[in-house]
Design a protein around this nucleic acid. Structure first.
Lengths: 339, 339
DNA sequence: GCAGAGCATCGAAGCGCTTCGAACGCGTGG
DNA sequence: CCACGCGTTCGAAGCGCTTCGATGCTCTGC
């Protein structure tokens, strides 16, 4: 392994000079700078991360805590994670991957050991057990998601309340009077995961103002559970003509089942989804949807974190405004159509 | 931040004693050991990772390189990644997440800086550009996947050649004479991704021995591209009765389309998939499938790596034997049925 | 009763880097 | 002509930990 000292010797300067060339914290003459750079190149020098962390007490690593719930839609998590890693690299940081397994203890461990300077947390529950540790302000953190009480915390998320409202508005404008919401797996609601509950609340609230009825049904992934869920929805509310779906895994099965039942989309039934663009455009019917901007969330989370690492402002909540894109799965409610 | 020295002072022993209590590399009397442990607990001490890495030249971190191809089935990658992270923790290691973005340079950087002691690489191409760097033996590495020439490397993968053969055997035994393989996205083959090409080779080879015809068609994700692909398959080989699918994203669309075309599964057409168990059991028809043991792959990769970190043996290739589970999507070929 | 073995513990020397104060040489203004 | 300032560079002191002798001990065995 090549060390700073060897580079210094090779370039005929002192170790500190090499260090300053690397960090740029003091001015070094152009000649010397170039000579040092050449030596670094020539010897293939890479600063030792541990030594750096020790001397500067900055590890240039951030931790990303990704829970491993089996009932969450994985690609979104992954896309966020990748965006985090990529953006972090742009800022000269690497990313440490933590699974939910260790729970809050992981926060302690990584914080305490100086392994990571800061952390990003995903899959936030409304009353997340990791939050008290973070509020202490032990170390900078950004949540991707919004807990019930974000005081003293920095969060970034899609504005899911507005998302729900947007779905309700869209379906209401098209004349639908009875809506069904097919949601995430029951476990997601049982855990009080913010995004699921907020979407529902936003939708319910707006629907109420429009005087529209809403039937909410969580639904596990997979074709099987959807068959049951959908059957029960139509049993209970045969007049349902509008669907809001927040569950990527049942989007395609839903379209298949409706087709099979002889209900045409969007002539008989309208569907609005909350999902990544890719899912919406690759489905068998191009879906009217509110996009979940996974990449953007990851990127913003890192940028907020970097800002916090420079100077630590207090709390801050960034809610991205939702955008509804009309595609082929929503249209006038049948009765309106007939007028 | 609490340091070793503070713990030592609090416990009334020397720093080295505390260190030995922590590492267990020298015997310490039970009394002292307990006293030190109490102090650690009391003060909330966490060893500084950087200092540790510097002094011992072991960072207790492994790097996981996950490419970010958009045409790969993400959940499998994620499941492997999670399994890697979880298993690594069991061995006292943390995981650094690297995206493909940096390419081979990332290997250099992480190796050179001592940030990670070893690495696990995913999405291996047959002639992967990262391999030369690893063969040099600069640092221990394990590949999840099998390149064309695994000499000097440690690899773990599902035996995809055998997987392909298993699919061919199963369909042949059921009397199918014309098979179609719906594969991954074209890009996957263009990159010469090992698992896709091997499956195909294994299947073709075995099919030839059975005297069965095989038509292979790559297929992008999404309903749209499958419609085209499937149409062309039946145009070209109207007698096709057996499908082997290695592309999780089109499994459900395929079943939907066949249903729509009035082809019953498994009465008219049999489908065998290569996919995770979850996909197979949650599809609208429970699929006969060869499972992709994502978790097992991640676990094994870490265990091979840990073994290598202890003593470095040479190359080693672990190929997990595939298992085909018969479910509801495969049955006798129609003509056989009529005999 | 004393040499030698063994156990428990300590002290000190780094690991490779950052950073602070000091030193050196040069040009400038009074 | 000297004092001063500035741009460059150096030396040394750590950062918190591991690890290798070395040092007292208490035990054994003859």
């Amino acid at each position: 392994m090549v060390t700073l000292a060897e580079v210094a010797r090779h370039a005929g300067v002192s170790a500190s000079t090499v260090s300053y060339v690397l960090s740029g914290k003091r001015s070094i003459s152009a000649v010397t700078r170039q000579r040092v750079r050449d030596s670094i190149e020539h010897l293939g020098y890479h600063p030792h991360a541990g030594a750096r962390a020790l001397a500067s007490s900055r590890s240039r690593v951030i931790a990303l805590m990704v829970p491993l719930r089996t009932d969450m839609y994985v690609p979104v998590m992954m896309e966020i994670a990748i965006a985090v890693a990529t953006t972090a690299r742009v800022h000269g940081y690497d990313v440490l991957l933590l699974t939910g397994e260790e729970g809050p203890a992981a926060v302690q461990r990584v914080t305490g050991s100086g392994l990571a300077e800061a952390m990003i947390l995903m899959d936030i529950q409304l009353d997340d057990e990791r939050l008290p540790l973070l509020r202490g302000g032990g170390q900078p953190a950004v949540l991707v998601g919004l807990p019930a009480d974000p005081s003293g915390l920095t969060c970034v998320d899609l504005d899911f309340t507005a998302t729900g409202a947007l779905c309700a508005d869209h379906l209401a404008e098209l004349g639908h009077r009875e809506l069904a919401v097919i949601g995430e797996a029951p476990g997601v609601y049982e855990r009080h995961t913010g995004f699921a509950e907020r979407t529902l609340a936003g939708l319910r609230d707006r629907a109420a103002r429009h005087g529209i009825s809403v039937l909410h049904r969580p639904c596990g992934g997979g074709y099987g559970s959807l068959v049951g869920t959908l059957g029960r929805i139509f049993d209970e509310r045969p007049g349902t003509t509008g669907f809001a779906v927040q569950n990527e895994a049942v989007v395609e099965p839903l379209l298949a089942l409706l087709r099979q039942d002889g209900r045409a989309v969007p002539e008989d039934v309208s569907v609005v989804a909350v999902c990544p663009e890719q899912v919406a455009t690759q489905a068998s019917v191009r879906l009217t949807s509110v996009a979940v901007p996974a990449q953007e969330l990851g990127r913003r989370a890192v940028e907020l974190l970097m800002a916090k690492l420079r100077s630590r402002p207090g709390e801050e909540v960034v809610l991205l405004p939702p955008e509804l894109t009309v595609r082929d799965s929503s249209g006038w409610a049948p009765d309106v159509n007939c007028r």
